[in-house]
Design a protein around this nucleic acid. Structure first.
Lengths: 334, 334
DNA sequence: CATCTTTAGGCGAACGTTCGCCTATGCTGT
DNA sequence: ACAGCATAGGCGAACGTTCGCCTAAAGATG
């Protein structure tokens, strides 16, 4: 592969002069410039970004550590990141993790070796990993789409209160009083937070917290399905279910259908995420729209600020309800 | 950031000796080795992959050029690529394109500047772009998940005949004789190919090709919807529709529903892709499973072979039918 | 005891850039 | 005619590695 030296030899100048011309820096006579440009073209010169980065101490590269993105939601965040990075002329190095996040430290190290200019984290499974927190604080500037153990890393997150409060208030306003909840993995901060908000909002309306109405669905379709059956087996009078993500909500809908319960006539269901399938479930799911792609883009912008100066302000993005067909007023007899 | 020299200073050796120790190469006395390792640890030494790549002429990096992966199907391919690359210790630089692929040449150039060891293409929009073909032939080893203008790039593709033949044969075996088709963008090779196979298989069964039964849906939900209305407006006796991808099939199902036609009782529908939503449509869609993720992984393996030696054998992956609820025997009266 | 061999580690060079400084050359002004 | 000054381009150094070759010293061998 041709280098500056090769071009220089062909144009009969020093290689530094070629560098000047190709970067439009120093003063070079038009004739020489022309000669150099032609030589570069003929020889098919392609600058070596590796060498350039070595010298300039900036790789123009962002590292992204993400949970497996076969699921639509992390994929959307990733799209947002990639798009925004591209807009700023940055390349993205992609590392996706095992479900348990155990290889995060290894991939962080790879990114540091590659001298990425910054790191974007989207791997909630690692949110309690102290080692990950330490590396992120010590390494290149980082921004996370979730909490980082020990803090010190700016985050971009969907408005945490709204995420649970909006759907619960919606159900309350429809007259529901016994509102069950299917939760995500309780190890996750976002799940615990949604649970806490659920409790608070119910309390605000004078409703007690009933543990019988809460079941773990572990974020998965099957978990939502099983949780619903457990809920209906042991508690009565449930007229609405708040599900902490849309994937579980799909399972919830299946379980309700299986029991001969009509949604939303017998039981309302609200999800969370606005996952692409939410528009195609039976019935289409009322849910909370989470700005995944926007969050990815915002994370890149925040990261660029951090790289430039060192402003540590977290970003909180608004969420909104998407009203579809899975919610209705509470049945009269309940 | 610490370099070999810094470690060397601390351990009182030459920096080359540090390199030897850290790479486990030359013979070094255990005591010195220990001293060096400790020094490296204390100082927080992280090797510089940029410098290493510069010297070794290998970046251990793969470039991926992909169509926008908000859609599940390219996302799945990408997952396959990333997973397999990771398995081989390669990092992935991700570049997603505008829908028209107009920025492909630019991003190819970026990848070449970054001296990626290989390139994986998944951007069908560029399949006729001569410039892209030229760059891919001239640049680092490449493998594509679709055709490349001018050839010369090994491809990994789903068995092209099966992709259309399987669903058509399925419909024929159910007794359907007037089988309509909603096609993808005719600029795409895969769409034209499926159309050709549709024709052939019908011919094999002594059925004529009727242009009235074929409509363009441009790969999109809305396109499928509109195409179906056009088909039903002008042709009669249609008892089955073969749709060239699942996204359009969603639109087809909506249109049929709107016309009061029951699927599969009045009209069968077969999609293609086995997109995640296909399992959740009303009714769940019978479709062709495309091995997107496997294809991504296979592409990486093929690329590694190409990098090692230079074997140009294309890979063809088998496809299979997924039978769900959108197909049934042809209505008797038709 | 002289030679050979192994072991430990130093050293120079190269990878392909960018940057700053230096030096010819030619042109201007007085 | 000579100082002064742009202008054009050369040159050395540095970024952080790896690699191969070289050289001491120490140990083995006859």
């Amino acid at each position: 592969m041709a280098s500056l030296r090769d071009v220089a030899a062909r144009a009969n100048v020093s290689f530094q002069t070629v560098s000047k011309v190709l970067n439009g820096k120093g003063a070079v006579a038009p004739a020489t410039r022309q000669r150099i440009i032609e030589a570069a073209e003929e020889i098919g010169y392609v600058p070596n970004a590796l060498a350039r980065s070595l010298q300039s101490r900036s790789s123009l590269t962002l590292g992204v550590i993400t949970v497996d993105f076969s699921n639509a939601t992390p994929a959307l965040s990733l799209v947002g990141v990639e798009r925004e990075a591209r807009k700023h002329g940055l390349s993205v190095i992609l590392s996706s993790l095992e479900p348990d996040g155990s290889d995060c430290v290894r991939y962080l190290r790879v990114l540091m070796e590659r001298r990425v200019d910054g790191i974007i984290m989207n791997a909630p499974a690692t949110e309690e990993d102290e080692e990950v927190g330490r590396l992120l604080r010590a390494g290149p500037p980082a921004v996370s789409l979730h909490d980082i153990a020990g803090g010190g890393v700016p985050t971009v997150t969907p408005e945490p209160a709204g995420t649970a409060a909006l759907p619960i208030r919606h159900l309350l306003s429809l007259g529901h009083r016994r509102i069950a909840m299917v939760t995500g993995l309780q190890q996750r901060h976002s799940a615990r937070q949604r649970t806490a908000v659920y409790r608070e909002v119910l309390a605000e309306h004078g409703l007690p917290y009933d543990p019988l109405l809460v079941e773990d669905g572990a974020w998965e379709v099957e978990g939502g399905y099983a949780a619903t059956h457990r809920l209906l087996d042991r508690a009565r009078g449930i007229t609405a279910i708040y599900v902490q993500n849309d994937l579980m909500a799909v399972g919830v809908l299946n379980a309700l259908h299986e029991r001969g319960l009509s949604v939303p006539d017998d039981c309302s269901v609200v999800g969370c995420d606005d996952h692409p399938v939410a528009a195609r479930t039976i019935p289409p799911l009322t849910t909370v729209h989470m700005p995944f792609s926007d969050a990815g883009a915002a994370a890149v912008r925040l990261l660029l600020e951090r790289i430039a100066s060192t402003s540590p302000a977290d970003v909180v993005l608004p969420v909104s309800m998407v009203y579809r067909a899975s919610t209705a007023t509470a049945p009269a007899g309940a």
